[in-house]
Amino acid sequence: MHTDQLKQEIIEYSKKIGIDKIGFASADVFGELKERLRRQQELKYQSGFEKGTIEERTEPKRLLPEAQSIISIALAYPSRMKDAPRSTREERRGLFARASWGVDYHIVMRDRLEKLAAFIQEKVPDGKNKVMVDTGELSDRAVAERAGIGFSGKNTSIITPEFGSFVYLGELITNVPFVPDEPVDDSCGSCTKCIDACPTGAIVQGGQLNAQRCIAFLTQTKDFLPDEFRSKIGNRVYGCDTCQVVCPKNHKVDFHIHPEFEPEHEVAKPKLIPMLRMSNREFKRTFGHISGSWRGKKPIQRNTLIALGHYKDETAVEEIIAVMLSDPRPVIRGTAAWSLGKIGTEEAFQAIKRAMDNEDNEQVRFEMEKGLAFRPPSSTK
């Protein structure tokens, strides 16, 4: 079969199986990306979650020696939650980023790509195909940019003409030599809204991200969160959408195409206090089906404590004290002490002082001291 005809059949089939956008790219080396990644490495801007070497991330033939083309696909996800529950003084809520709403997109994306691969295999029996979704070595964004899905914005997201940047990306490497699609012109222009709005200054310049300062990354770490970022994450328990929300290309963009990506209110905006002493089983039952659960409950619970401190939620003091006294994890005990100090009630300060007498972990004691330091000098006894 002629590849032009096959390409058209693949495009038509992609629409039938719920792929919102599809593009075709060459499997040539991503030379510009390779230099950018080396620079990121030198500057220590990487998150540490990246998979593979720089060569594996930029040379498709290392992943599939017969590679001739890469097919990039995009699935649109919602940017607004219908009838979203409000966070009230009596019932504070956290927030998962939009990319974690609904069923884990890795599952949905892999389903679409595997169907696409099976379709191609049927048409080209001796074809070789490799499916990749986010956790693979290739840069989804670099592939999508080359395949004409969208352009790479200053916020480092792929911005599509149709769906803005609220899209999930995945790709399929194949040995079929398809004619590549044309890239989309960059239309960020002189706009710097994402750079200006980033809470931590993680967008160093247009298109360059210091992942070590990015809230989306920081909410996924498992150690104590550095002090300078604690006031920045607010009530975010996983991820950050600021650089996308402020983007003019996302103005009024809100697609509810895939039922799988619709947010569940009590999952996407969970009540904070019940999350503090949630068991592993409860956590998996409640959050196990969303992408935001991949790092386990520890970072989520640490962020929950920070959010309650941010809110100065006095209704949570008793529960946070229980966590500080009984949780076996130093990061959680220490963050609980910090949160109590941030909330600042007399009961909270007294609890920290008493807990210090029985705490032998140096880091936790240091956090307890930070908590006590929030106490106004005039009220110390």
Rank of each mutant, 00 (worst) to 15 (best):
K7Y: 09
E9S: 13
E9D: 15
S14T: 03
D20R: 09
K21R: 15
G23I: 00
F24N: 02
G31C: 03
G31Y: 00
G31D: 07
L33S: 05
E35W: 04
Q40H: 10
L43W: 14
S47D: 08
E50V: 02
G52H: 12
G52Q: 13
R57W: 03
R57I: 05
T58F: 00
T58L: 01
P60G: 11
K61I: 05
R62D: 11
L64W: 05
P65D: 11
A67D: 06
Q68A: 14
S69M: 08
S72N: 04
I73N: 02
A74P: 00
L75G: 07
L75F: 07
A76Q: 02
S79F: 08
M81H: 15
R86V: 14
G94S: 00
G94P: 00
L95M: 15
R98H: 02
S100P: 01
D104H: 07
I107L: 12
R110V: 03
D111H: 15
D111T: 15
R112Y: 11
L113N: 01
L116H: 01
A118K: 14
K128P: 00
M132F: 07
V133Y: 00
V133I: 05
R141F: 01
A144Y: 01
A147C: 05
G148L: 03
F151T: 01
K154M: 14
S157I: 04
S157D: 08
I159V: 14
T160C: 14
N175M: 12
P177Y: 13
D181C: 02
P183G: 10
G189Y: 12
A197T: 11
A202D: 01
Q205R: 15
N210A: 10
A216C: 06
L218R: 07
T219N: 09
F224E: 00
D227L: 13
D227H: 11
K232S: 08
I233H: 06
I233R: 09
R236Y: 04
V237E: 00
G239W: 03
C243I: 10
C243A: 09
V245S: 11
C247I: 09
C247Y: 02
P248A: 06
K252F: 15
D254A: 04
F255T: 04
H256V: 04
P259G: 04
E260N: 14
E260R: 11
P263C: 12
E266A: 12
V267Y: 06
L272W: 03
M275W: 09
E282V: 14
G288C: 07
H289T: 09
S291M: 00
G292Q: 00
G292V: 04
S293T: 06
T304Q: 08
A307D: 06
A316S: 13
V317Q: 05
I320G: 06
I321R: 08
L325I: 10
S326D: 12
D327K: 06
P328D: 13
I332G: 01
I332C: 07
R333G: 01
R333E: 05
A336M: 10
S339D: 09
S339K: 07
G341N: 01
I352Y: 04
K353H: 13
E359L: 02
E362G: 07
K370V: 11
L372E: 05
L372C: 08
